[in-house]
Structure formats: structure tokens, C-alpha cells
Design a protein around this nucleic acid. Structure first.
Length: 1037
RNA sequence: AGGGCAGUAGCUCAGCCUGGUUAGAGUGCUCGGCUGAUAACCGAGUGGUCCGGGGUUCAAAUCCCCGCUGCCCUACCA
């Protein structure tokens, strides 16, 4: 053990400890040590290689590191591969920026796919390095050298294997589907790319009349915000269960028409129509259920403008009324214009009715047919509106502000367009997924609801992307017969390929070159698509280990944005392959927001860089802060003030540790079991406390409830250790070197600190290791992380813990009372009176109360005074329910003193017809004004102040000691340094002087050559004033 | 629009599951005290429409319903 300086710099310490771990290869040694322990399989949700971590990703890894360090302390062999998300559009975009290009055409024509891919790879790897360094700076111990990377051959192969399996199970399909399409980037976008990209836009809002084919005066009224989709209208969908009204409308010139509108919306529609139409009168003439209208044939309004629509209308079910549950009566007319080529729900309805999926636009969003061929569809809106007006089919026109998806890259409003894509048919196994989700241990538990609700709404998973940087789809299509095959491994591919391609790397464009022979004799070429990046990370549970079987993760944890993303994507794949969920326990954490609760973002300029925080405070302070600022599933408002609170907490810990060690060093203390024989009550108390704490913390970390874990540690450090235990043993530490009571205090401190730092080590690994390195003996393991976390049950004494709690309350009450009457701690209290309820406690721990409260006598007696009664509502409520107020009235109607005595004698007392039992009431002694009484949980403490000469003298003595000590401190003397003191203005007897000398390490002399002198004013409680001059001289060697 | 979570002191948060009459802690501010581990600590004061409105109950921060606000997720409601 070596002496410890206070005023610690946690950042310097954490760098020192990181060096220590590095030089001694501690991480590997710890892994090795736990090699044969029970396995704990952790799967890291891979962060995207964007180039820099933020506080949220820092928090994420700190949670993981803390939990895993704890599992290791429990002896588990933790599988702890980190992972990286490396493919995908975000990196492609960055690389496009580097090349100063921005279209697919440029990639293929100007740069070349090969060079482009090469650059993406470089970019991902470079970012990975930067982020890895940042994670390491936080003290995160993961198996960085063996991290999983989806760009590696094995990983890609696992992806192929997965798809092949899915195919074999009939869960892979090629379908025409409506997808998001960016007309500027000329590509489809994935659902997740659209998330968070909804913005408010103003669109046209029009009501259109669709005339029925067989009745010239009857119209279906529809509402739409995308007039351009009318060019592909196929159906009008209505709800089968809703009521639809035939409204007889009388227009200018006595023209009568019938409008079919959802019944509750009639007035609404008429109101809207009034603006552009002279409606003289209207009347609902008939109401029918939606299903009765099914099959009605109508004339689509843009029939003349699009040749193709005319062809389609000859088909039986085209341009008829269809039924759909998705129709609502919230807005519009209750009738929905349906264009299967331009909308997901429309597509579904269209499929059910077997009408063509008609999507007459090109990659850039321009019509490929019809009157406005070549015009960008949004541009065509106004022409269409005009045309409808001319044709008399426009009922009303307006604007609507609503949220609409945009391209996250170029901010262009997206279109919906039917294209051919590859899908995993989640719809077929959705019920299984939901069922499996119920077997997961979710933290917090309501994530289950959220997850399941999320899954309920997901459709089939579109896994194909018309992009470059991703796992290539292992699907080859025959150019002659159109059949396709899914390849499950590199070996299989090599066996099948009919040309010669080096398959070292499996990305585009390499695999694109591979040709296979079809059974029909034709040549098969790979589909050009790559996989959605969410497929990459979804593979992680087995691909990270290169497995071909399910290995359920014991634990995963990610932010709340991942509930419907990674929690789902990996489950979906495992459900397809193994019919099971790939994790047992799944925890969700929140986001880190700025101080005001805003999201941290570049545009707001409020981003806090974790590296900067670590640089200023050290990694441990940030770690503890992030795990204690809130419950893990709630968001954290990042605050430097709270970070400072954490720093001061660890300052306190450090000072407690320095206090202990410095005295131990001074006395050359060596820890020994045998000193445990001399334990005093307070020692046994804190030893019990630390073991209770250990037990509770193990439970908290098992869940894991990291907030209770850190909160309990904080309370222990501040309340139990620093503010109480050290205060109690202070006097024992000044004793001479061989005093067993001092040694037992040291032994206790040693034991407690060792246990404490072990509990702290998962969250503050550097500080704990630093303390451990100084406290450890030769025989102990090289690093704190090689130790095991255990509870010494035999030291737990619950009664002692409770009783000590009461002792502390009493002492605190004494302090409060003293404060109230301005009677300082330096003057002894002649006597205090405590109630009978704490008689045992006084008997056992009276000495502590006396010492801490500076009390001479404790008397145990019931204070005689007027009594008041307080009803115990909880108890009364149980018995009397609604009678409670009457019972309370009855209780209050009799003299409390009488009630108390009778209850004591008779047990049960009848008042006003109610039986009153002792547990129904509490009695309280009212204190007269002139008595100093202070309440605590078991009654009151009464302070009896009597100023005798003797008491004043003792107080004066303490006044003097305190001042000399203050002067020593001013002089910056070492604790053991001796001084000469000259004192004038107050006198003491010989014994007192000697006592003072002992307390302050000084000798009173007649003459000194002062190094420091000072005059003090002392006022005693009996209002005597002393002017005391004190001069101190250092004694030099 | 639907789902989940949150709303309590100037600020950060406990308490709510399991209802009990004086709603807590830390921090901030004011005043006082203590101190040879502590830029620490202790005490007093300051500070609350427990988001709003209904309901259940003898009793609601707590349970129920309806709203409002914020965050996340889902969503082309045409």
C-alpha cells in the first residue's frame, strides 16, 4: 500500500489504468481465466460505420460493458464479439460525395462499380477504426480483434445460406410490389430509409365525381390528394360495413343528380361542394350498406385522356366498386379512388379483385402513356384538375397540409410505384413470431407490447435494393426460361459456374460476372440487386459466430429505435430458419438528449462529443453518470451539472479511500483476518451493510436494473461509508499503533473497500482497478477483474442494520435540536431523554449516541405531557371502510389520555359503538414550549441543557482544540508533525492541557518563536467572551 | 391517425404496481453550524393547481375514463 494524494484527476488515472491493462494484456488474461465458466452469449447490435460515435452509442456500449464485466465477475465465460454495420446507402452517399457524383448512372459510367465498391470498403474500414478507438477510450472491453463484419466472405456466405434456406421453405418470393421511389435518385427506397423523413407538404385536395355506367345521373364521390394517380385508376374502394347515402342534389337549372357518399360525411361533402356548385337543395333519399354497392360499374374520369384505361375498362372488374376494410370515414367521402400501381393498400385491393397493376411512369416520375406522356406527375396535377373541371367532374378543389415521405438524401417527395422486388414472406410466419416474442424476457416488460404491436403491422420484408454496396443477392435467373435458383455457399457457386471468376471477394461486380447453366440449357445471370442492410445485422446471432444453427443470445440491449428494427430483423431471420427467437433477454435503452431535452443534431449545434467529456472528466465519471442519470429505458437529458455531481461523488469515495489508506500506511498496517475478532458494533454494522448491498446489487444487475445498481452504490458511499462509518471511527484512528480497536477499524475499512470497489468495477473500471492495485496483497490476482463477486452471508445482521439506522436518526435529531437552541456540539449536553421504545437500542449503542451527540447521560423514560391521538387511516380503512369518518370522530371525542390508558389496560375500547383496537391509533406526546424535543421515527429526543462550570470548561477545551487544528491545517502541517504552542487568554488545569496536547500533537510552552499566530474570539453558551491568542511553532528535526 | 413511454419544487428525478390525510431526495438560493479524509458535511428557511377535466372511493400524485403536451415507433388514411 502506498500513500494516496487527494485531489485526484480521474482522466489521468484512466489513461494510466488503460496502459496497465494494455501492457499486462489483462483483457486476454481475464477471458482466459473464465474460459471454462458457464457460457454467457452476448450479441452486439452493430453500430453503423458512420465515422463517429455519439453519446447515445457511447451509452449503449457502456451498458453492455457494465453488464458483461459483471457477468465475468460472476465467473461466466462471456462471448463478447462486437460488430459493425458496414454496407448500405449512407456509405454509398458519402462515397458519391467524395467522387463528386450523385447518380447511379455516374457510378456505372464515370467511376465504375469496381472502384466504387473498393472506395466504400475503404471508407467503412476507416470509420470502423475511428469508432473502435472511441469505444476503447470509454473503457469498453469487447473482443475488438475478432469483431464481426458483414463485408467479410464468411458473413456474406451465411447470408446466402440464409436466403437459400428461406427459398427452400418457400418463404422467398419475387413480387410486383409498390415501393417508395425517389424520382430524382431514380431508385427505390427501403421502409427504414423513409422513417423520420416525413415532412409537412401542401398538396391539392380534390373531390371528384365518378359517373355510374348505367345511370347517367348518379355519381360516386371520391376524394384524393394525388390527382396524378387518377391516370391509373382501376377501382373505387368502399367499406363493406359502412352506410352509404344516395344524396339527391338539386343544382342550378333544376338539374337533379344523385351522389353516393359515406353517410356521416354527407354534410361535409355538400359544404365543400357548395363553393363551386350552386346547390339549391339536397336530400338523402336512400341509405345502403357498402357491400350492397360492390360491383357497380363506373366510368373513370380520365378515360378519354388515357388510351390504356379504355382498354382496361373492358375488363370485367376494372372500374367497379370494390370492398376494403382500410376505408375510413375520418376524412374525404368514404369512397377511395384506387390505383394499384401507385399505392400499397390499393395494390392489395387490386390483387384481390384481379385487376392489372398499372404503373405508367418511368424512373424519373414521368408519364409513359396518355395525354401527358413525358410530363412529371406532380407537374401534371394542375392539368388534371383543370381537365376535370372542364368535364364537370370536379366537385371541389382545395389544398391540404399533411405529412408525406421524402427522400432522406435529396429531400424530394417520394412517389409510390409498382416494381419487381424480392421478398421474405413474413406474413406466413407472423403468428409464430408474435408467439415467440412472448417467451422473451423484455426489460422493461412493456417493450413486449410495443414489439408485438410493431410486428402486427409489418408486411413482407422487401430485401432487394437496386444499389451497389451490400451483400449481393445469391439469385441467378435464366435468360431463356426465366426460372431462378438460389445459391447457398461459395462452394456451390464454384461448382456450378460455367465461366472462371475469382471469388476471393463476394461483392459486386465480381459475383455479377458469374454465369450458371440452367436445367433448360440456358445461361443464368445473377439478379443485379444487393440486400437490405437490415438483413446484414439480422444475421448477427449466428453469422457473427459463423454458425449454421441457432444459438440464443443470453442478452441483447439496444436503443428504443431498434424495437421494430434490429430486435425484429434478427428475430425475423431466425424465425424463418429456426422457427425461434434468437435472444432470451432483451433490454431497451433511451436516447441522450441535450440539456433542454432536444435531440442532439448537427443543425442545432448541440452535439456533445463523448471524447471531449472523457477528456475533461475521465471515462468513469461519464460511465457512472450515464447509468445513473435515469432509468435505462428513459431518455437522458445530458447535463454537465449532473456530471459534476458524479465527479464529486467519486471525489468523496476517493477521499474516504485516501483517509483509510493514509492512516494504514502511517501505521504500516497489513490486513489480517484475525483483526476481525476485535470488531465493534459499527464495524459489524458496515460489514453487514456491504454484504446486504452486494446481495441487492447482484439482483439489480441480473435484471439488469442499472439505475438501482448505481443509486444504491451512491447511497452507500455517501451515507453509510463517508457520512456515518468514517465519522464513527475517526477517534479510533488517532490511537497508538498497536491498539486492537484501531486495527479492527482498519481491517473493516479494508474489507469494505475491497468489496465496494468490486461492486463498482463494472461501472467504473478504471477507478476500481486503481484502488485495487494499491490495496491488493501479493497473493491476490493481478487485476480486480479476475476476482469473483460473492456475498458473505454470515456477516449479514438485519437487526443490527435496522438498529443502527435508529441510532443515526437519534444522533441526527440531537443535532437538529442543538441547532435549534444554538447549543453547539462542542459543549456537552448534560442529559437527553429517550422513549422506552428505544430502550434496547440505548443499552446497546448508547456509547455511540453519547459520543456523536456529545451527551453525558441518557435517560430512558416516557415523557409526561399532554397526549394527542392520531388515527391510523390505513388500519381503520381496512375494517370500517365507509364508516371511517364517523369512527375518527368518535376517537377524537374522548380524552386521548383516557383512551391510551384504557387501550393499555383493556386492549379493546368501545367508543360510540365502535370497537377501537390499539393498532387503529398512534399517540403522540405534545411538547410544551419550554422543553427542547425533537421527533424521530420512534418518538422524540428531549434535550436537557444545564450549564455547569464543568460543561463550559469542556466546551472551551474543544473550542481551543478546534482552533489549533484549524491553524495546523492553515500551516499545511503533516498529520504526525509536532508543534510548540503558546496560548493566552484562557486557562485550563493540567489534565485538560495534556489532553489538548494529545489531540493536537503539541506542547504548551511559555516561549515560542511563532511560525503562525492568531487571535480568536470565543463565546460560550453562558455568554462569556474570551479573547484567545494562539501562537504555533513548528518543531524542526 | 394507431401503439408505447413520459409529464411531481427553478432544474434533475423518487413515490404510482399494492390508495391512507404533513408528497420526498439531490441540486439551486438565503441563513446558521460542524470539520485534521472530504472544494466535504449537518441543520433551518425558500420552493408544489403532483399536466387539465371528469369518475370510483370514507380517502386519489397513486385506480378508471376523456383530453393536452413532449419523445419514440408505426403509417402513401385516399
Amino acid at each position: 500500500m502506498e500513500e494516496v494524494k487527494t485531489g485526484v484527476n480521474f482522466r489521468e488515472m484512466d489513461l494510466e489504468i488503460k496502459r496497465f491493462w494494455e501492457e499486462r494484456d489483462i483483457y486476454r488474461k481475464v477471458k482466459k481465466l473464465r474460459e471454462h465458466g458457464p457460457e454467457f452469449y452476448f450479441v452486439d447490435g452493430p453500430p453503423y460505420c458512420s465515422g463517429a460515435i455519439h453519446l447515445g452509442t457511447a451509452w449503449n456500449k457502456i451498458i453492455k460493458d457494465t453488464v458483461l464485466r459483471f457477468k465475468r465477475l460472476q465467473g461466466y465465460n462471456v462471448l463478447d464479439k462486437p460488430g459493425w454495420d458496414m454496407h448500405g446507402l449512407p456509405i454509398e452517399v458519402k462515397v458519391e460525395e467524395e467522387f463528386k457524383i450523385n447518380s447511379k448512372k455516374d457510378i456505372e459510367k464515370k467511376i465504375g462499380t469496381e472502384r466504387f465498391i473498393e472506395k466504400c470498403k475503404e471508407f467503412a474500414l476507416r470509420n470502423k477504426e475511428v469508432m473502435e478507438r472511441q469505444f476503447k477510450n470509454l473503457g469498453v472491453w469487447l473482443d475488438w480483434e475478432n469483431a464481426y463484419m458483414p463485408i467479410e466472405r464468411d458473413y456474406i456466405e451465411t447470408g446466402w445460406w440464409t436466403l437459400k434456406k428461406a427459398h427452400e421453405k418457400g418463404l422467398l418470393s419475387k413480387d410486383l410490389r409498390v415501393v417508395y421511389w425517389c424520382p430524382r435518385c431514380e431508385t427505390s427506397l427501403a421502409e427504414h430509409e423513409v422513417r423520420g423523413e416525413y415532412r409537412e407538404v401542401v398538396d391539392p385536395s380534390i373531390y371528384v365525381k365518378f359517373r355510374l355506367k348505367d345511370r347517367e345521373d348518379t355519381y360516386l364521390i371520391i376524394w384524393t390528394t394525388t390527382p396524378w394517380t387518377l391516370m391509373a385508376n382501376m377501382l373505387v374502394t368502399i367499406h363493406p360495413e359502412f352506410n352509404y347515402a344516395y344524396v339527391k342534389v338539386t343544382l342550378e337549372g333544376e338539374v337533379e343528380e344523385y351522389w353516393i357518399v359515406g353517410e356521416p360525411l354527407v354534410e361535409d361533402v355538400i359544404e365543400k361542394a357548395k363553393k363551386d356548385n350552386k346547390i339549391k337543395d339536397y336530400q338523402v333519399v336512400k341509405t345502403v350498406k357498402g357491400r350492397e354497392l360492390e360491383g357497380l360499374k363506373y366510368i373513370t374520369p380520365l378515360l378519354e385522356e388515357n388510351e390504356r384505361l379504355r382498354e382496361f375498362s373492358k375488363m370485367e372488374r376494372v372500374h367497379t366498386v370494390a370492398l376494403g376494410e382500410h376505408v375510413s370515414l375520418e376524412e374525404g367521402t368514404g369512397l377511395v379512388h384506387t390505383a394499384p400501381g401507385f399505392g400499397e393498400e390499393d395494390f392489395e385491393v387490386g390483387k384481390r379483385y384481379g385487376v392489372p397493376v398499372y404503373s405508367p411512369i418511368d424512373d424519373r416520375g414521368r408519364y409513359t402513356e396518355g395525354l401527358w406522356k413525358g410530363v412529371f406527375v406532380k407537374e401534371a396535377d394542375k392539368y388534371i384538375i383543370e381537365r376535370l373541371r372542364e368535364k364537370g367532374l370536379l366537385l371541389a378543389e382545395g389544398k391540404i397540409k399533411h405529412s408525406y415521405p421524402h427522400c432522406w438524401r435529396c429531400k424530394t417527395p417520394l412517389l409510390f410505384r409498382a416494381t419487381e422486388q424480392w421478398f421474405l414472406k413474413i406474413s406466413k410466419i407472423k403468428e409464430n413470431i408474435i408467439e415467440q416474442a412472448r417467451s422473451v424476457h423484455w426489460v422493461p416488460s412493456w417493450v413486449e407490447t410495443r414489439y408485438i404491436n410493431g410486428v402486427k403491422y409489418v408486411g413482407d420484408w422487401n430485401i432487394s435494393r437496386q444499389r451497389y454496396w451490400g451483400i449481393p443477392l445469391p439469385i441467378w435467373v435464366c435468360e431463356s426460361c426465366g426460372s431462378y435458383e438460389v445459391i447457398g455457399s461459395v462452394k456451390e457457386l464454384e461448382e456450378r459456374m460455367i465461366n472462371k471468376v475469382d471469388l476471393e471477394d463476394l461483392h459486386k461486380p465480381t459475383v455479377d460476372k458469374v454465369l450458371l447453366r440452367c436445367h433448360c440449357g440456358g445461361v443464368m445471370k445473377r439478379v443485379p440487386d444487393v440486400l437490405d442492410v437490415w438483413f446484414d445485422s439480422g444475421l448477427a446471432p449466428y453469422a457473427s459466430m459463423n454458425l449454421r444453427e441457432l444459438k440464443k443470445a443470453d442478452f441483447i440491449v439496444e436503443g428504443h429505435d431498434q424495437v421494430t428494427k434490429w430486435f425484429y430483423s434478427q428475430h425475423a431471420l431466425s424465425a424463418i430458419l429456426f422457427n425461434d427467437v434468437p435472444y432470451k433477454k432483451c433490454m431497451m435503452h433511451g436516447f441522450v438528449l441535450d440539456e433542454k431535452g432536444n435531440k442532439m443534431s448537427k443543425s442545432l449545434g448541440n452535439i456533445v462529443n463523448p471524447d471531449d467529456v472523457v477528456e475533461e472528466y475521465g471515462a468513469d465519471i461519464l460511465r457512472f453518470y450515464l447509468l445513473s442519470a435515469n432509468k435505462v429505458w428513459e431518455d437522458i437529458k445530458f447535463s454537465y451539472n449532473e456530471l459534476k455531481d458524479v465527479r464529486s461523488l467519486f471525489n468523496t469515495l476517493w477521499n474516504a479511500y485516501a483517509f483509510a489508506v493514509n492512516y494504514m500506511v502511517l501505521d504500516n498496517f497489513q490486513p489480517r483476518e484475525e483483526y476481525m475478532r476485535y470488531l465493534r458494533d459499527e464495524d459489524r454494522w458496515i460489514i453487514s451493510r456491504i454484504n446486504t448491498l452486494t446481495k441487492e446489487i447482484i439482483e439489480d444487475l441480473e435484471i439488469p436494473h442499472l439505475h438501482s445498481y448505481t443509486w444504491k452504490l451512491r447511497d452507500f458511499i455517501l451515507e453509510d461509508l463517508s457520512r456515518w462509518y468514517i465519522r464513527l471511527i475517526r477517534s479510533r484512528t488517532w490511537r497508538e499503533s498497536e491498539d486492537p480497536e484501531k486495527l479492527s477499524a482498519y481491517q473493516t475499512l479494508y474489507y469494505v473497500l475491497m468489496k465496494l470497489i468490486l461492486l463498482l468495477s463494472p461501472v467504473v473500471p478504471h477507478i476500481s482497478e486503481k484502488i485495487y492495485q494499491n490495496l491488493k496483497t501479493e497473493e491476490m490476482p493481478e487485476s480486480i477483474f479476475m476476482k469473483s463477486i460473492t456475498v458473505d452471508e454470515e456477516y449479514i445482521d438485519k437487526t443490527l442494520e435496522e438498529e443502527m439506522g435508529v441510532v443515526r436518526e437519534i444522533v441526527d435529531a440531537i443535532m437538529r435540536g442543538r441547532d435549534r437552541i444554538k447549543y453547539t456540539l462542542r459543549y456537552p449536553l448534560w442529559r437527553i431523554i429517550l422513549p422506552k421504545s428505544v430502550e434496547d437500542i440505548v443499552k446497546k449503542y448508547g456509547h455511540i449516541i453519547k459520543e456523536q451527540g456529545n451527551v453525558r447521560e441518557i435517560e430512558v423514560a416516557e415523557f409526561q405531557g399532554s397526549i394527542s391521538v392520531k388515527p391510523n387511516y390505513r388500519e381503520l380503512g381496512k375494517v370500517f371502510k365507509s364508516e371511517v369518518p364517523k369512527v375518527v370522530e368518535a376517537i377524537k371525542s374522548i380524552d386521548p389520555q383516557v383512551l391510551k390508558e384504557r387501550l393499555e389496560k383493556e386492549g379493546v375500547v368501545k367508543v360510540g359503538g365502535y370497537e377501537i383496537k390499539p393498532e387503529y391509533v398512534d399517540f403522540k406526546v405534545e411538547m410544551p414550549e419550554n422543553i427542547v424535543g425533537v421527533e424521530f421515527s420512534r418518538g422524540s429526543v428531549y434535550l436537557d441543557v444545564k450549564l455547569t462550570e464543568d460543561i463550559i470548561k469542556e466546551g472551551l477545551m474543544r473550542e481551543v482544540i478546534r482552533r489549533i487544528q484549524a491553524m495546523r491545517k492553515d500551516m499545511d502541517l503533516d498529520i504526525e508533525e509536532w508543534v510548540k504552542i503558546k496560548m493566552e487568554g484562557v486557562s485550563f488545569d493540567r489534565d485538560t492541557l495534556e489532553y489538548i496536547e494529545g489531540e493536537v500533537r503539541g506542547k504548551f510552552c511559555e516561549e515560542v518563536t511563532p511560525d503562525y499566530n492568531k487571535t480568536w474570539e470565543i463565546k460560550t453558551p453562558d455568554n462569556r467572551r474570551y479573547k484567545v491568542e494562539i501562537a504555533i511553532e513548528r518543531i524542526k528535526e
